[in-house]
């Protein structure tokens, strides 16, 4: 099996604070992490490799040079080779432009590394939360897609996926090549060992620059200019003020006061 996992480096959104005066995000000092859903995606790939050790897992990340750290981390928990797609030309891309760049990079990698059977992506990145790049890569490549996967396995030329729906799960099969986006499964991704970390550190990360894609990419469709959506403004959400605080002598008294408030305000 030849598997690709797309990875994004994101700020740890649990560590983000809002500047109380300027009302902007404080990003300084916020640690960068591998997008958790991408870590789950890699884990699904690694589980396929556990069963079939001849499987090769390639990682692809688009981002600034420091995103190498995220790729190194992924190399220590199942990844075999890694590509970092980096360049000023790619900056400011929205999901459509990003997916186009990634799809073009995937075709480029396939020229040397062979066709991928499965492309795994996290269902969404926790900074943008769009869940669009995966399906859009599938559309650019004209591949079938299965989203919200929590489990997957390979059977002959099929990939079978347990997919989360709004009210349960469904089991879906698709012929490979196929793109699968992954949500939170019932298990945690594996941890690196000291040995696997050292091995990952020694590995070279291959770079893909704009020049490498120039022959096959339409430059009008990438970056800020090539993006159909534009961010008009950003602002911090309102904090609810004027909430009623109830803190009576005993829990029972508080409950009674809450009940009185709720009936008076016709909530119940």
């Amino acid at each position: 099996m030849n598997i690709l996992v797309c990875v994004k480096q994101v700020p740890d959104t649990t560590e983000i604070k809002i500047d109380p005066v300027k009302k902007t995000l404080i990003r300084d000092g916020v640690p960068s992490i591998v997008n958790p859903f991408d870590a789950y995606a890699l884990e699904l790939a690694a589980r396929i490799k556990d069963k079939d050790p001849s499987t090769k897992i390639t990682l692809l990340c688009m981002g600034p040079p420091q995103a190498e750290a995220a790729l190194k981390e992924c190399l220590s928990v199942g990844g075999d080779v890694a590509y970092l797609c980096s360049g000023r030309e790619f900056g400011g891309s929205d999901t459509l432009a990003t997916s186009y760049i990634l799809a073009t990079a995937i075709k480029k990698i396939e020229e040397t590394d062979g066709k991928f059977d499965i492309i795994f992506c996290g269902k969404q990145a926790i900074d943008g939360d769009t869940a669009q790049v995966g399906p859009e890569i599938a559309e650019h490549l004209d591949y079938p897609q299965i989203t919200y996967a929590v489990e997957s396995y390979v059977e002959g030329d099929l990939v079978k996926v347990k997919r989360e729906t709004d009210d349960g799960f469904e089991l879906i099969a698709a012929k490979m090549p196929c793109l699968v986006t992954v949500t939170k499964p019932d298990f945690d991704p594996r941890y690196p060992t000291i040995k696997s970390k050292m091995a990952a550190n020694r590995k070279e990360i291959a770079k893909i620059a704009f020049a490498d894609l120039e022959a096959t990419i339409d430059a009008t469709k990438i970056g800020l200019k090539g993006s159909p959506t534009k961010v008009k403004k950003t602002f911090t959400p309102d904090v609810k003020t004027g909430g009623v605080k109830i803190n009576e002598e005993t829990g029972a008294d508080s409950a009674k006061k809450l009940f009185a408030c709720l009936t008076a305000d016709k909530i119940i």
């Binding site: 904090v239 609810k240 909430g243 009623v244 605080k245 109830i246 803190n247 009576e248 005993t250 829990g251 029972a252 508080s254 409950a255 009674k256 809450l258 009940f259 408030c261 709720l262 009936t263 119940i268």
Partner: peptide
């Protein structure tokens, strides 16, 4: 959680909930 709450009860839920449940049942 109190920053987004319309009604914030500071208390032990094991003391608050049974009484709240009883009141709603009465209603």
């Amino acid at each position: 959680i109190f920053n987004v709450a319309d009604y914030g009860v500071v208390g032990d839920l094991f003391e608050v909930l049974p009484v709240l449940i009883a009141e709603i049942k009465k209603l």
